[in-house]
Nucleic acid binder design. Structure first.
Lengths: 153, 153
DNA sequence: GTTTCTGCAAAGGTTTTGCAACAAA
DNA sequence: TTTGTTGCAAAACCTTTGCAGAAAC
C-alpha cells in the first residue's frame, strides 16, 4: 500500500513517543486504500477485510491519531454520522458538494474562493487557520432527464 | 416572547395536522429567547427555566419540528456536539467563524461569497440549495496583546 | 370522541474507558 | 525491563421509541 502515508504516520507516532504496531498499520492501510469518505464503522469493516481480528477499540484509538496527525480529516456531510476524508493529502483545500438527488459527494476546490475566504477572515480581525465549505445542491441532470448518473451510494 | 416566531411555528404545525401545546410553546420560547447557538441539552436547560417539567423526549421531538420548519438551523461548529442556530431568520445566509483562541463564534455574511458559491455550483452542473461555510481562525488581538477580548463561553 | 401529545423508562447507536495480558523498543 | 498497546466488556453519551395516560380539537 501507500508507503509514503505509512511512513508519515510512523513519523508522527514516533514524535509522540508512541509505537508502531501491526494493528495500526492495518487501519492506516484500510483508510488510505480508498478515496471514498467513510464512517468509523465503515473503516472498521475495511480494516477487518485485511485483518478480521481488528477491534473496535483499537480502531477508534487509531482513528483519533490519524485525525490528530492531519493525515485524515473529519468532515461534515450533513448526515447523521461523522465522515472521514482520506483525500486531503492530495487535495489540501478541497470542499464538498452533496447532491440532494442521489446523495453523492463531489469534491472541488477553487482558488478565488480561498482568496475570498482569507480576505473575509482578515477583515474580521483574524488570521485564517482552516476553511470548510459544504454545498448542498440538486443536479441539472435530474432536472432535465429525471435521472442522476451518479449512483446512490 | 417573539410572537412572530410562535405564529410561524403554529402555522407550520397546523399545516402538518399537528397540535399546538403548552410544552411546545415553552421550547420555542426558549429557543428564540437567545441569539446564542445551543446544543439540545442547553435548550433543555433553557426550557426548564421557563417550565421545570419540560421533558427531554418532548424537547427532542420539538427540536426536530423546529429544524424541519426551517425556523431553527442545525450547524456544525466543529465541536463534539450538534449546535442549533436561531439567527437564520434575521440573517438568512450567514456563516460562522470560530476563534481558536477563545472558542467564540462570529457570524458573518458576504455577498461576493454567495455569488461565487452559486457560480461554482452551476459550473459543476448543479443548482444550489444550501451553502455552509465554516472558518476556524486565530484572532489578531491574541497575537498582539496575548489576550482575546471575547470571553471564553 | 378521535387523534395527537406527553413523559417515563427502556432501548438504540456510537464512542470511550478500566483493566489485565501482551508486545514493542 | 520498561512503557505503550490491545481487546474485552462495561460504561458513558446522546438520541429515539413503545406505551399508557393526558390533552387538543
Amino acid at each position: 500500500m501507500d508507503k509514503a502515508i505509512q511512513s508519515r504516520f510512523d513519523e508522527f507516532i514516533r514524535k509522540k513517543g508512541l509505537r508502531r504496531t501491526a494493528q495500526r498499520d492495518v487501519i492506516v492501510e484500510a483508510a488510505f486504500g480508498t478515496t471514498e469518505h467513510f464512517t468509523a464503522d465503515e473503516l472498521w469493516d475495511m480494516s477487518r477485510r485485511i485483518d478480521p481480528a481488528t477491534s473496535r477499540a483499537t480502531l477508534y484509538r487509531t482513528l483519533a491519531l490519524l485525525v490528530e496527525s492531519g493525515l485524515l480529516q473529519e468532515i461534515d456531510l450533513g448526515r447523521d454520522q461523522k465522515y472521514y476524508d482520506p483525500n486531503f493529502l492530495d487535495h489540501p483545500n478541497h470542499n464538498h458538494l452533496i447532491c440532494l438527488d442521489c446523495n453523492s459527494v463531489v469534491e472541488f476546490s477553487d482558488e478565488h474562493m480561498e482568496v475570498l475566504e482569507d480576505c473575509i477572515t482578515r477583515r474580521l480581525g483574524f488570521r485564517p487557520s482552516s476553511k470548510n465549505l459544504r454545498i448542498e445542491a440538486h443536479c441539472e441532470e435530474m432536472a432535465s432527464t429525471g435521472h442522476c448518473k451518479r449512483a446512490d451510494k
